[in-house]
Design a protein around this nucleic acid. Structure first.
Length: 321
RNA sequence: CGCGGGAUAGAGCAGCCUGGUAGCUCGUUGGGCUCAUAACCCAAAGGUCAUUGGUUCAAAUCCAUUUCCCGCAA
């Protein structure tokens, strides 16, 4: 790329729409290489017990680079200001609101989205968590044109990565965030000069990865060891899987696959303790829980938890619900 | 002022209700046993019981205060 090209790119008016950490590397690369005219993100939210108003990660990037930040409460109604900017291109990534038709049709180069799955698989708000929880062996990034449906637009490019057993939602999140940034940077030139491809999604192949609900976080030990293992790592490090021990919430942050199978025991029954955790019966074997967090306490290695419980009586035989 | 749990040795906990010399499981260090060991046995070190004040002959324990940590909900 020569100097003249950069000059042309700087004249592009790009509006970026996004909210969480995931979108930060993507926004920063855009700012660096093309410049961003304005940022749209969710309103500041009251967070935590103290109810402190906290800006979104994307807003913080905007402030750092002194870029105009807009935070409409309802984008469906408050889009006029963005249209007035006459953007050439809108790039979205995990924005968190449905974007109205008027905005989708406004930029001459269109409205593109960086989505963290291999569409049409896992449309929706939690594709990273769901990819692990569902036991996928691979996932990836899709860059697509947006339409009025949820993640239903035409695909421009995709790039995949394998999901390893050692991956958690956190590690996969970080990998995909970087992958998304790189793929967008590699794809943008073709979008800008109009040479990109455009492929419709196979509707019949579509699956959804909706936001994680409280029920998704509750461990069901009547599932297989593998399913429980995937659920636990798929919810680490946010929001975390949990079970009920002695009537209280016990968050489960990490586990490994155990090797015992004792069909006489109940699902959810603690059947063994080890140097690194305690074994719980599942429908087809044993899951060894290695990192926990009791209600009101900090995250701790399961062996610490076992040591504390030991002088209250044996854990073996107790049931997790 | 959204609801709730917690702060006791390096870690995780018990003791508090019914005040009277601080305990458990680990870890650490030293020793022993063993061909050997992360296993077993013995021993030791390590705590102003989060802060401040009050009640009392006496407070980890009862009362009040402050700070910090966390779960739920949003």
């Amino acid at each position: 790329m020569n100097i003249e090209d950069i000059e042309i790119n700087k004249e592009l008016k790009i509006v970026f729409m996004g909210t969480p950490d995931f979108a930060v590397p993507i926004l920063e690369a855009l700012i660096d290489k093309y410049g961003v005219r304005a940022i749209v993100t969710q309103p500041d939210k009251e967070v935590g017990r103290e109810r402190i108003l906290k800006p979104t990660p994307i807003k913080e990037v905007g402030i750092k680079h002194t870029i105009l930040v807009l935070q409409p409460k309802k984008i469906k109604e408050e889009y006029a200001e963005i249209v007035a900017l006459e953007p050439d291109l809108i790039v979205t990534c995990a924005y968190g609101q449905i974007i109205p038709k008027e905005l989708l049709e406004c930029p001459r180069l269109g409205c593109i989205n960086v989505h963290a799955s291999l569409l049409p698989k896992l449309r929706g708000g939690a594709p990273i968590h769901r990819a692990i929880i569902n036991g996928f062996s691979k996932t990836g990034i899709t860059i697509m044109y947006m339409n009025e449906g949820m993640d239903k637009g035409d695909i421009i490019t995709q790039r995949e990565i394998p999901i390893e057993d050692t991956d958690t939602a956190e590690t996969l999140h970080d990998k995909l965030s970087i992958l998304g940034r790189d793929l967008l940077m590699d794809t943008l030139p073709s979008i800008i000069d109009g040479t990109n491809t455009r492929t419709k999604q196979e509707e019949a192949e579509a699956t959804y990865g909706f936001n994680i609900s409280r029920e998704d976080e509750h461990i069901d030990f009547s599932k297989t060891t593998r399913q429980v293992f995937n659920q636990i790592r798929g919810l680490n490090s946010w929001p975390g899987a949990y079970t009920i021990y002695e009537g209280k919430i016990l968050k489960v942050w990490a586990s490994r696959i155990g090797s015992n199978y004792d069909p006489i025991k109940n699902n959810g029954e603690i059947i063994n303790t080890y140097d690194d955790g305690f074994g719980v019966k599942t429908s087809n074997g044993e899951i060894v829980i290695t990192m926990v967090q009791p209600e009101g306490k900090k995250k701790m290695p399961a062996i610490d938890f076992i040591n504390g419980e030991r002088n209250k009586g044996s854990m073996i035989g107790k049931i997790l619900r």
